[in-house]
């Protein structure tokens, strides 16, 4: 049976040097470059692979964020996604994982209306900016669908269920989940392909609908800062690493001797 799949993606900082404005405690977005969340590349790839595996399937990408989040959606199309949708607007600003999960779930319901149904939602296990790993499970909870995180393999997809491998510390669980379902996938699940030429051309041309709170029909008390039970009290950059000690000159033997002396001086050995 062909599946309708939605992959959730996010535009996140693509640099390790994140600057935080000490006055507001929020990210200095204007100083940073952004790209699709690296973990999302695996989610997109798995969606596209399932589409290729099950003839007639369709895969869409959905994002919640500022208008520039379109970049993450276009990248998803370049990598093989069929269509993309953006949830954006001032009402969503400041959403925590609870409110984000709600907004995405509403977006998925709207996609289900447009496409007839949605069978599977794929999220990455986390983003590289806020690292919570909560949005995938939250989407599942809001939809009332089974939610499985830490998925490292989709072993079988039938009409009614998915058989998955969920990574555990000491091995993996084999889980069968009814469809529709939400899964959050790990990096181990696949090796993402690069964009294709035809994909890039399609991404350039794609019209991406942008849904605000009204179009989505959301309960505004559940989104944005107002709808978020969690608030970030403070954000700070980690202190800069102190400069290391460099052992200079001489033969390797001399350097080794200096190193041992230094370690003894610090009472580390």
């Amino acid at each position: 049976m062909p599946l309708n799949i939605v992959v959730c993606v996010k535009l996140t900082p693509s640099t390790a040097n994140i600057e935080i404005d000490p006055a507001t405690g929020s990210l200095r977005r204007e100083k940073m470059s952004f790209a699709i969340n690296p973990f999302d590349e695996y989610a997109v790839e798995e969606g596209v692979r399932l589409k290729e595996r099950i003839p007639g399937s369709w895969v869409g990408a959905l994002s919640l964020g500022a208008p520039d989040s379109e970049a993450a959606l276009r990248e998803s199309i370049a990598r093989g996604v069929d269509e993309a949708f953006l949830i954006s607007g001032p009402a969503f600003e400041g959403s925590d994982t609870f409110a984000t999960g709600y907004a995405l779930a509403m977006g998925i319901k709207k996609i289900a209306q447009i496409k007839g149904r949605v069978d599977l939602v794929i999220c990455a296990k986390q983003t590289n900016d806020s690292d919570t790993g909560q949005v995938g499970p939250a989407v599942a909870a809001w939809l009332g669908w089974p939610g499985i995180s830490f998925v490292k393999k989709v072993e079988e997809v039938s009409d009614k269920f998915l058989r998955l491998h969920r990574m555990m510390e000491d091995g993996y669980d084999v889980i069968e989940a009814d469809l529709p379902a939400v899964i959050a996938v790990l990096k181990e699940i696949n090796e993402p392909r690069l964009a294709s030429l035809k994909g890039k051309m399609a991404a350039k041309k794609a019209a991406i609908p942008r849904w605000g709170a009204a179009e989505l029909g959301v309960d505004e008390s559940k989104i944005g800062r107002r709808g978020s039970p969690c608030a970030v009290a403070q954000q700070a950059a980690p202190p800069a690493r102190p400069q290391g000690h460099r052992i200079q000159g001489g033969s390797p033997q001399e350097k080794a001797k200096q190193l041992v002396e230094k370690l003894q001086e610090l009472k580390l050995i």
Partner: peptide, 8 residues
Amino acid sequence: EDIRKADL
């Protein structure tokens, strides 16, 4: 295979 998938 990578070159093929990229349509090159």
